[in-house]
């Protein structure tokens, strides 16, 4: 990376998009904290205790509430995004790892890694609405753009389970490669990407009009000088225009850039060590990656597909979420 060009690039990007400052929340799995970064200055503005082994992290649609899976506390902790105070906890079932919010902000669908369950929790009444038995070691969670289907990936069963949000039944299962970690829909809901960490692949699943999923392609990765064993796909993000897919490659310390039209890898962006999960800023100008082993996050310029800078956070950053525009301060 050209270090001198960075501030200029940043300034250009910010100027071009007219972006407002957003808060970036990063869960630190080993540090038991959440780090808060200002997306205007890209400086750390706070770090606060977030329970034991915080991993999955997300924000309510109105931007006011931060949800954190405190895995070793067997609970979801809810924080005020303005004050960073803990508001209350939600029942999560044992060992919550990742979750996804309904587009309306309610309910929350939680993967319970130790218990082979997906737990559905009402974020207003705090009641458990359903517990859905899934495969062994459920992890990845995604919700279809129309809100009708929640997808869970199970790491040892090696499946994507398609769960109806109406009857909480599994309607389809798709076998993917070893240790599926994450699932991400395209904005039109017609494609689902599922990463397989140990398989070293991303499965491309076509979603038919009636919701039937079909495995249609498998994306593989290759980086000169990097052992194939270390190309371990984890986090996935797709731009809302459906053109670009970003895949975090774990210990390969790179984010793969995939042209969604062809599902071909076009570039690899060098980031920090053991890159795990990612989040866009609301304008999609920037993509923030958590780098677990270098204890930092990397900010990627999405349009230029370049890494801009790294920011030191807490111990073993895992997940990242960004407040939407218009969030009250």
């Amino acid at each position: 990376m050209d270090m001198k060009a960075m501030p200029i690039a940043l300034a250009l990007a910010l100027g071009a998009t007219g972006a407002q400052a957003n808060k970036v929340f990063v869960s630190n799995e080993k540090g038991n904290t959440v780090t808060v970064i200002d997306s205007d200055s890209w400086t750390v503005i706070d770090e606060f205790a977030a329970g034991n082994r915080p991993r999955g992290i997300t924000i309510s649609p109105d931007g006011t509430k931060l949800y954190v899976c405190a895995s070793d506390d067997d609970t979801v902790r809810v924080f005020d995004t303005a004050t960073h105070d803990e508001l209350y906890t939600l029942p999560s079932g044992p060992d919550p790892e990742l979750f996804v919010l309904n587009h309306s902000g309610n309910p929350l669908y939680i993967a319970n890694e130790d218990d082979n369950l997906v737990t559905v929790v009402d974020t207003e009444t705090h009641a458990v609405l359903a517990e859905i038995p899934v495969g062994v070691e459920p992890e990845g969670m995604a919700i279809s753009p129309d809100g009708r289907v929640v997808v869970n990936t199970s790491e040892t069963t090696n499946m994507a389970h398609f769960i109806s949000t109406e009857d909480y039944q599994i309607h389809h299962n798709i076998l993917v490669d070893q240790r599926p970690r994450y699932a991400e829909y395209t904005a039109d809901g017609r494609k689902l990407y599922v990463s397989a960490e140990i398989g070293g692949t991303v499965s491309v699943i076509d979603i038919a009009g009636d919701g039937t999923p079909t495995l249609v392609d498998t994306i593989r990765f290759e980086v000169p000088g990097v052992l194939p064993e270390w190309l371990q796909p984890v986090g996935i993000r797709v731009t809302s225009d459906g053109k670009w897919v970003f895949v975090a490659l774990g210990p390969a310390n790179r984010v793969a850039v995939i042209d969604a039209a062809t599902d071909e890898v076009v570039d690899y962006i060098l980031v920090g060590q053991r890159v795990w999960q990612m989040a866009f800023t609301p304008d999609e100008a920037f993509l923030i990656t958590t780098n677990g082993n270098s204890n930092d996050v990397t900010v990627i310029d999405v349009a230029r597909q370049k890494a801009l800078r790294s920011i030191q956070v807490g111990q073993q950053p895992w997940g990242v979420a960004v407040t939407p525009d218009g969030t009250p301060d």
Partner: peptide, 11 residues
């Protein structure tokens, strides 16, 4: 056996 049964349930 538990792991295999959980996976087998779907198949």
């Amino acid at each position: 056996d538990e792991d295999n049964a959980t996976t087998g349930r779907f198949l």
